Simulated scan of single mutants.
Amino acid sequence: MPSWVGFLLCVAVFGGIQVDSYCDVKGKNVAIEGKASQSSLYHKLGMAQGAIDGNREGVYKLGSCILTRNEFSPWWRLDFHEPRKVGAVVLVNRKDCCWERLMGAEVRVGNSPDNKNPVCGTVSEVEPGLVTTFCCEGMEGRYVSVVIPGRDELLNLCEVEVYTEGKKKACW
Protein backbone atom coordinates (compact mmCIF):
# COMPACT_ATOMS: atom_id res chain seq x y z
CA MET A 1 0.00 0.00 0.00
CA PRO A 2 1.39 3.44 -0.86
CA SER A 3 2.31 5.52 2.19
CA TRP A 4 -0.29 8.18 1.34
CA VAL A 5 -3.05 5.56 1.56
CA GLY A 6 -1.88 4.59 5.04
CA PHE A 7 -1.82 8.26 6.00
CA LEU A 8 -5.41 8.74 4.80
CA LEU A 9 -6.47 5.60 6.65
CA CYS A 10 -4.98 6.97 9.88
CA VAL A 11 -6.77 10.29 9.38
CA ALA A 12 -10.05 8.44 8.75
CA VAL A 13 -9.66 6.15 11.76
CA PHE A 14 -8.38 8.71 14.24
CA GLY A 15 -10.04 11.86 12.89
CA GLY A 16 -6.68 13.62 12.67
CA ILE A 17 -3.00 12.99 12.27
CA GLN A 18 -1.72 10.24 14.53
CA VAL A 19 2.05 10.40 14.54
CA ASP A 20 2.91 7.80 17.14
CA SER A 21 1.06 4.48 16.96
CA TYR A 22 -2.05 2.53 17.76
CA CYS A 23 -2.52 -0.85 19.39
CA ASP A 24 -3.35 -4.01 17.48
CA VAL A 25 -5.24 -6.19 19.99
CA LYS A 26 -5.55 -9.95 19.51
CA GLY A 27 -6.97 -12.86 21.47
CA LYS A 28 -9.76 -12.97 23.99
CA ASN A 29 -10.59 -10.66 26.86
CA VAL A 30 -9.23 -12.40 29.99
CA ALA A 31 -10.48 -9.83 32.52
CA ILE A 32 -13.36 -12.08 33.60
CA GLU A 33 -10.74 -14.55 34.90
CA GLY A 34 -9.72 -12.10 37.63
CA LYS A 35 -11.38 -10.74 40.75
CA ALA A 36 -12.28 -7.05 40.73
CA SER A 37 -12.22 -4.66 43.68
CA GLN A 38 -12.29 -0.89 44.16
CA SER A 39 -11.32 1.68 46.76
CA SER A 40 -14.93 2.43 47.79
CA LEU A 41 -18.51 2.01 46.63
CA TYR A 42 -20.76 4.96 45.85
CA HIS A 43 -23.92 2.91 45.30
CA LYS A 44 -24.75 -0.77 44.87
CA LEU A 45 -25.17 -0.24 41.09
CA GLY A 46 -21.46 0.65 40.84
CA MET A 47 -19.84 -2.54 42.11
CA ALA A 48 -16.33 -3.52 40.93
CA GLN A 49 -17.44 -6.64 39.01
CA GLY A 50 -19.53 -4.43 36.71
CA ALA A 51 -16.36 -3.39 34.88
CA ILE A 52 -15.61 -6.97 33.80
CA ASP A 53 -19.09 -8.22 32.96
CA GLY A 54 -18.45 -8.15 29.20
CA ASN A 55 -20.94 -5.32 28.70
CA ARG A 56 -19.67 -2.03 27.26
CA GLU A 57 -22.92 -0.23 28.08
CA GLY A 58 -22.03 3.29 29.21
CA VAL A 59 -25.17 4.29 31.13
CA TYR A 60 -24.59 3.98 34.88
CA LYS A 61 -28.21 3.30 35.91
CA LEU A 62 -28.24 0.15 33.74
CA GLY A 63 -25.86 -1.46 36.25
CA SER A 64 -22.76 -2.23 34.17
CA CYS A 65 -20.44 0.57 35.35
CA ILE A 66 -18.38 1.03 38.51
CA LEU A 67 -18.45 4.12 40.68
CA THR A 68 -16.37 4.98 43.75
CA ARG A 69 -17.05 7.68 46.30
CA ASN A 70 -15.34 11.03 46.01
CA GLU A 71 -11.93 10.38 47.55
CA PHE A 72 -8.25 11.03 47.12
CA SER A 73 -6.67 8.82 44.42
CA PRO A 74 -9.61 6.43 43.86
CA TRP A 75 -8.82 3.10 42.23
CA TRP A 76 -10.26 -0.02 40.63
CA ARG A 77 -8.17 -3.20 40.54
CA LEU A 78 -8.23 -6.61 38.89
CA ASP A 79 -6.43 -9.47 40.65
CA PHE A 80 -5.49 -12.49 38.50
CA HIS A 81 -4.05 -14.28 41.61
CA GLU A 82 -0.83 -14.96 39.68
CA PRO A 83 1.30 -12.94 37.26
CA ARG A 84 -0.11 -12.68 33.73
CA LYS A 85 1.23 -11.27 30.51
CA VAL A 86 -0.72 -8.13 29.57
CA GLY A 87 -0.60 -7.06 25.93
CA ALA A 88 -3.35 -4.45 26.03
CA VAL A 89 -5.94 -2.89 28.32
CA VAL A 90 -9.15 -1.35 26.99
CA LEU A 91 -11.16 1.18 29.04
CA VAL A 92 -14.73 2.14 28.23
CA ASN A 93 -15.76 5.50 29.65
CA ARG A 94 -19.19 6.41 30.93
CA LYS A 95 -21.44 8.08 28.36
CA ASP A 96 -24.48 9.40 30.25
CA CYS A 97 -22.54 11.98 32.29
CA CYS A 98 -19.33 12.74 34.11
CA TRP A 99 -16.95 11.25 31.51
CA GLU A 100 -14.39 13.97 32.29
CA ARG A 101 -13.67 12.33 35.66
CA LEU A 102 -11.49 9.73 33.93
CA MET A 103 -9.01 12.35 32.64
CA GLY A 104 -5.51 11.58 33.92
CA ALA A 105 -6.37 8.07 35.12
CA GLU A 106 -3.44 5.67 34.95
CA VAL A 107 -3.55 2.03 33.90
CA ARG A 108 -0.97 0.15 35.97
CA VAL A 109 0.29 -3.44 35.69
CA GLY A 110 2.45 -5.25 38.24
CA ASN A 111 2.72 -7.50 41.27
CA SER A 112 2.25 -4.98 44.07
CA PRO A 113 -1.25 -4.70 45.59
CA ASP A 114 -0.70 -1.02 46.49
CA ASN A 115 -1.46 0.30 42.96
CA LYS A 116 2.06 1.70 42.62
CA ASN A 117 2.94 -0.62 39.75
CA PRO A 118 4.46 0.50 36.43
CA VAL A 119 2.19 2.62 34.25
CA CYS A 120 1.01 1.13 30.97
CA GLY A 121 -0.82 4.28 29.91
CA THR A 122 -2.57 7.46 31.02
CA VAL A 123 -5.97 8.69 29.89
CA SER A 124 -5.33 11.86 27.91
CA GLU A 125 -8.65 12.23 26.08
CA VAL A 126 -12.19 11.90 27.40
CA GLU A 127 -15.52 11.87 25.61
CA PRO A 128 -18.86 10.23 26.35
CA GLY A 129 -18.49 6.47 25.97
CA LEU A 130 -14.96 6.73 24.57
CA VAL A 131 -13.16 3.40 24.18
CA THR A 132 -9.43 3.82 24.87
CA THR A 133 -6.86 1.10 24.21
CA PHE A 134 -3.50 1.06 25.96
CA CYS A 135 -0.75 -1.09 24.50
CA CYS A 136 1.12 -2.72 27.39
CA GLU A 137 3.20 -4.93 25.07
CA GLY A 138 3.75 -7.87 27.39
CA MET A 139 4.01 -6.16 30.76
CA GLU A 140 3.63 -8.80 33.45
CA GLY A 141 1.74 -8.63 36.69
CA ARG A 142 -0.80 -10.12 39.01
CA TYR A 143 -2.70 -6.82 39.15
CA VAL A 144 -4.16 -4.48 36.55
CA SER A 145 -5.44 -1.29 38.09
CA VAL A 146 -6.96 2.02 37.07
CA VAL A 147 -6.02 4.86 39.41
CA ILE A 148 -6.79 8.57 39.37
CA PRO A 149 -3.60 9.81 41.05
CA GLY A 150 -3.19 12.86 43.24
CA ARG A 151 -6.67 14.38 43.32
CA ASP A 152 -10.06 14.06 44.97
CA GLU A 153 -12.42 12.47 42.46
CA LEU A 154 -15.04 9.82 41.82
CA LEU A 155 -13.85 7.03 39.54
CA ASN A 156 -16.33 5.66 37.06
CA LEU A 157 -15.67 3.12 34.32
CA CYS A 158 -18.06 1.05 32.28
CA GLU A 159 -15.76 -1.75 31.14
CA VAL A 160 -12.18 -2.86 31.49
CA GLU A 161 -10.88 -5.48 29.07
CA VAL A 162 -7.49 -7.16 29.36
CA TYR A 163 -5.83 -8.92 26.44
CA THR A 164 -2.70 -11.06 26.54
CA GLU A 165 -1.67 -9.87 23.08
CA GLY A 166 -1.28 -6.27 22.00
CA LYS A 167 1.34 -4.70 19.81
CA LYS A 168 1.96 -1.10 18.81
CA LYS A 169 1.67 -0.50 15.11
CA ALA A 170 2.92 2.61 13.39
CA CYS A 171 0.15 4.59 11.82
CA TRP A 172 1.96 4.82 8.49
Rank of each mutant, 00 (worst) to 15 (best):
M1K: 13
W4L: 12
G6S: 14
L9W: 12
L9E: 15
L9F: 08
V13K: 14
G15P: 09
G15A: 04
V19I: 02
D20S: 12
C23R: 06
D24T: 08
V25M: 12
V25Y: 02
V25L: 02
K26G: 11
G27D: 05
I32K: 14
K35H: 06
K35P: 08
K35E: 13
S40A: 05
S40H: 00
K44V: 05
G46H: 00
M47L: 05
A48D: 09
A48P: 01
Q49E: 10
Q49G: 02
G50C: 15
G50P: 04
V59Q: 14
V59N: 12
K61Q: 13
S64W: 03
I66V: 07
L67P: 07
L67N: 11
L67I: 00
W75D: 04
E82A: 14
P83G: 10
K85T: 15
A88E: 08
V90M: 02
V90Y: 01
L91N: 01
V92P: 03
V92I: 12
R94W: 11
C97F: 09
C98V: 04
M103S: 10
G104F: 13
V107G: 11
R108T: 04
V109N: 07
D114C: 10
N117M: 07
T122A: 05
V123M: 11
S124V: 05
V126Q: 05
V126A: 01
V131Q: 12
T132K: 14
C135I: 12
G138Q: 04
G141I: 13
V147L: 12
E159Y: 05
E161V: 06
G166K: 01
K167S: 14
K168T: 09
K168E: 03
